[in-house]
Design a protein around this nucleic acid. Sequence first.
DNA 1: ATGGTGGCCCTGCCA
Length: 269
Amino acid sequence: MCTVATWNVNSVRVRSPQILDWLQDNSPDILALQETKVPDSVFPVDDLRAAGYHLLYSGQPSYNGVALLSRSAPSEVLIGIPEFQDPQRRVLAALYDAPDLPGGKLRVINLYVPNGREVGSEPYFYKLDWLARIAKWLKQELEIYPSVAVVGDYNIAPEDQDVYDPAFWIGKIAVSDLERAAFKDLLSLGLYDAFRLFTQTPREFTWWSYQASAFPRNLGLRIDHLLISRSLVDHCSTCYIDRTPRGWKRPSDHTPIVVKFRNGSAAHI
DNA sequence: ATGGTGGCCCTGCCA
């Protein structure tokens, strides 16, 4: 069994006690974090290493920042993507032992996709350009590694069923046609939305605004995703959103999403 | 209710 999770924590310093609690309760093999919001010099290494995880992190002051926590040691670590000088820390990739999966290794790519702020704005076009560059690079990664999981905060709700009020959201950020087309371009590389392999019901969200009691009213978006290569689909035993941490005191506005893989041969016994 | 929340090198900006 191999468990991979992703969680936009909106500040790793504020959330590290909750991250530890969640690790304790769920013991994933790999946890990808986004919006750590700390430069590497002050990443809360001591807090998190106490839980017995290897740490990788790439951050900057105040904004962005990604991290990978893992039970086994990482290799082939990549910070940012090749041939793209981006001052914003949004990409972190590593290779992990995964004896039961094709190739015996799992390539985990952790993305914090730009928010885009407003359709038509400068940050919006940065988001679209960023996604195009990511697609080009992921194509290469998928050719190199037999088992790939591309996880993180995509800041895109792929379909209307992933939005609490689709009529209100028409043309808005995270749901615009160009963003959804960019998301589909990633899927067309041979990636699968792990959550939708198991759950077809609408209004299953990973993010709820802090405002207006959005969480208790379930007014959210499904914008955090675990995309997996074709080779992993037959090994995937479950994928679910864990709403628990969103209900804790002083929560992140996002909640974790989890995917589990099992030995493929077990299904055929 | 012309507001709402929360995090950031502290205060206007970002999500």
